[in-house]
Design a protein around this nucleic acid. Structure first.
Lengths: 306, 306
DNA sequence: CATCTTAATACTTTTAAGGTATCAATGAAT
DNA sequence: ATTCATTGATACCTTAAAAGTATTAAGATG
């Protein structure tokens, strides 16, 4: 079977006339006659009855005409979908986020992507840093969102945003009335820190920051994630350093205080990671959208300043 | 787009290896490489990632593979269905029957046909003789069942069966106790006859038969069909000549009596008519099945005699 | 480092699709 | 009744494209 024959058949069926059909197809009449004959021979079926005024479809021919319509529409769909997939506009993308990643820029970015690529199906998985890297290598995911990523040979990362830190303290604490808390006052709080897994992590970063500021933090408790940490603060466990985005989480008895006199690096990154041998157009589209998202975000914050 | 390319693509996708795929396809490797390159170029999409061990489908390629499966299955279906239609094993057949044709051999024959050609959709239309011929000429039907057909230039007919006549009389009539009624006793009954339309018809035939037997029948009433005729007999209108097949219709107060001492032609035919320029394989199949039906019917009646 | 395997390229041969000229059959017009 | 125009089919030639052969380039493997 040959699509050329089916295409020719369709035109002859429409025109009911070999000569006219040949003109429509921009070929001469004899090869068209032969193609139709070959098609009939191949199927073993008479598709047209030839009368001196032209050609008329037989019942079998009429049925084939319907089928041919479906075939062409299916082929058209297939090529379109394949092309979309090749441009990263169609497909499935598995993305990992960390526990408290459901807050802040990640959902904004994902929504932004989904608006631009509505036919890309995003599947979210919650996993820690080490698990994300493993899943990336096993190709179970294409992208992971995380913080404080150590460079790896086979994995690249792209910054999403930088976030300032805030200190979650009890509303009953004397400093709760202050506008800002100077960074070095952190030494006075027993700290609840997270996460316990995935080095280098936020705990390591905090310790380094405090040492830069000339003191060693009093880490009283380690927990798995920001939500648990802040919950402990509410219960009187001390203070907890969190990125700005986590402050959307409001818990009675806790206030988030901006820090003053902070070291330069008193910010934490939000990045996304991906295999650097990943040539997928979906990933390409995702990273491009991410850059666009960052630009728009920057402009918006400028706007907000004016 | 070209089915050859899709076929080749499918095999390469299965084998993940151009060389092996070429062997499966019984061609050499270079032309296969080129076909795949051309397909990618045509779609503007990279379908395979080439590594030194072979070829791996990209996401877009994997999607195309699924689509290609559907395309081939659709094409396969289309050819099969077209071939079936070409052999008269698939399609729609419009058949006309006359009013009392729902009794007797017609439904048997249609059932017989339907068993052999289950994918042929039979659509029945009830119409009189003249209407059938008109519908045949306008190609609204392919076959009509009727009796006593005058030969026509553009319409052929094929005998289905011959039926003896019986006389429907009231159970109250003195002759109701007889085993047979001699043909010439018909002169003693006022006759209810049918149909009123479509010459030559059963009425003409009856008149001729009676004249052959040496009398003129007393036609007291003309009605449209056998059912009405027999119903009138029940009400005391006299007698009604009906073909054997109509005797399945049992109405209280009416008995059907076989005739004795009948003229040779005291039988009525059941035939089917069709356009003699109709080359449709459906009709061919139908007529062949009809012949087969007649043969089986003959054998069966022989069996019944033994 | 040599060797093997992979897919890709250069060039030739073969196949098949397309073109030109013509025919046979049919129907319409003179 | 004969001519003429129109239909699809056939014979033969040309062109395009698919397949084959030989070879190359790039990685992997021992």
């Amino acid at each position: 079977m040959d699509l050329r024959k089916l295409r020719y058949f369709k035109v002859v069926a429409d025109e009911k006339h070999i000569g006219r059909a040949a003109k429509v197809l921009h070929i001469s009449q004899p090869p068209l006659t032969r193609q139709i004959q070959q098609l009939e021979e191949e199927l073993g079926v008479t598709l047209f009855s030839r009368n001196p005024k032209g050609m008329e479809l037989t019942d079998a021919g009429a049925l084939l005409r319907e089928e041919v319509r479906n075939i062409f529409s299916l082929i058209e769909q297939a090529t379109e979908r394949t092309q979309k997939a090749g441009q990263g506009r169609l497909g499935r993308m598995d993305i990992a986020i960390f526990g408290s990643g459901i807050m802040g820029d990640i959902p904004k970015m994902l929504l932004f992507f989904k608006e631009r690529y509505p036919e890309v199906n995003i599947v979210l998985h919650t996993m820690g840093k080490g698990e994300q890297i493993k899943a990336l290598r096993q190709k179970r995911i294409s992208v992971g969102f995380n913080r404080l990523l150590a460079p790896l040979a086979d994995i690249s990362s792209e910054l999403v945003s930088m976030e300032k830190l805030r200190l979650a303290i009890s509303t009953k604490h004397p400093m709760a009335s202050l506008e800002h808390i100077p960074f070095e006052k952190i030494r006075e709080f027993p700290l609840v820190m997270y996460p316990t897994a995935g080095r280098p992590n936020f705990i390591d970063k905090t310790i380094r920051l405090c040492q830069l500021a000339g003191f060693t933090p009093d880490i009283s408790q380690e927990v798995g994630d920001a939500v648990t940490g802040v919950a402990l603060v509410a219960s009187g466990f001390g203070a907890c350093l969190v990125p700005e985005s986590a402050t959307v989480l409001s818990i009675p008895g806790v206030v988030y205080k901006p820090l003053s006199d902070t070291p330069d690096e008193a910010e934490v990154d939000l990045s996304c990671i991906y295999r650097n041998d990943d040539e997928s157009p979906l990933l390409k589209a995702f990273l491009e959208t991410l850059k666009e998202f960052r630009t728009i975000k920057d402009n918006r914050s400028l706007d907000e300043l004016c």
